[in-house]
C-alpha cells in the first residue's frame, strides 16, 4: 500500500488503535506502543498510524523524528544505551564509548553487521552514582571501565554464539 520496502503486519496494530480510542492516547503513546510491537517504526506502520489517528503523514513523521526514543530503522538484538550524562562524562563515558565502538566496530546510532548490537548514546539514565553507566536492553551496568565494558560485550557475544 505504501509502496515502500517494508511489509509489516498491520493487523498487530488493531489493539493499539482500540486502546487509543478507549484511553484517549495521544500520537506519542500510539507510536510508543507500535514500536514495542515492531521493535522500530516501519514506514508503512507510520502511514497506517497517520490514517487511523487522523493525522497527516507529515505530522506523524515529524513526531517520530523529533523524539530520540523512536527508531525508524531496525535495531540489533541488544540495544546498548550508553549514558553520556554529566556524572558519566566526568567519570570517563567517552572512553567507554570508544571501547564499545572499537570492540563492535560501529559508531553511535549504528547496528553491528550481524544485527546483534546497536549503540545509542543517551543524555542521562539517572544512575549517576554508578557512573559511567550503560544499559543493555533491560539490564544496567555501572562503574564501567573500558576493560569491563569489553568483557560484558564479549560475554553476550559468547552466549549468543552457543
Amino acid at each position: 500500500m505504501c509502496g515502500h520496502c517494508c511489509n509489516s503486519d498491520l493487523s498487530l496494530l488493531t489493539e493499539v488503535f482500540n486502546d487509543m480510542n478507549g484511553n484517549g492516547d495521544n500520537l506519542i503513546s500510539v507510536l510508543q506502543k507500535a514500536q514495542d510491537i515492531y521493535g522500530y517504526l516501519p514506514t508503512d506502520v507510520l502511514y497506517e498510524i497517520a490514517e487511523k489517528t487522523g493525522n497527516s503523514p507529515a505530522k506523524v513523521m515529524g513526531v517520530a523524528t523529533f523524539y530520540t526514543q523512536f527508531r525508524l530503522k531496525k535495531v540489533g538484538k541488544y540495544l546498548i544505551l550508553l549514558c553520556k550524562g554529566t556524572a558519566c562524562h566526568v567519570n570517563g563515558a567517552d572512553s567507554i564509548e570508544k571501547a564499545i565502538c572499537e570492540e563492535l566496530k560501529i559508531q553511535d546510532g549504528d547496528t553491528t553487521e550481524d544485527g546483534l548490537f546497536s549503540l545509542k548514546t543517551v543524555a542521562c539514565l539517572g544512575c549517576c552514582s554508578l557512573s559511567p553507566v550503560m544499559m543493555i536492553n533491560e539490564d544496567t551496568y555501572g562503574s564501567l571501565t573500558p576493560a569491563k565494558t569489553v568483557e560484558i560485550l564479549r560475554e553476550i557475544r559468547g552466549r549468543e554464539a552457543k
Binding site: 495521544n26 500520537l27 506519542i28 523529533f66 526514543q69 523512536f70
Partner: peptide
C-alpha cells in the same frame, strides 16, 4: 504520559505540546 526522549520537554510549553502528542 511517557515522554519519548527530548530534554526540551522539561520546558513547560514544550511539555504541553508533547502531552498533546506533538513535537515538543
Amino acid at each position: 504520559k511517557a515522554g519519548a526522549g527530548a530534554f526540551v520537554c522539561g520546558e513547560e510549553t514544550a511539555l504541553i505540546e508533547s502531552l498533546e502528542g506533538k513535537r515538543g
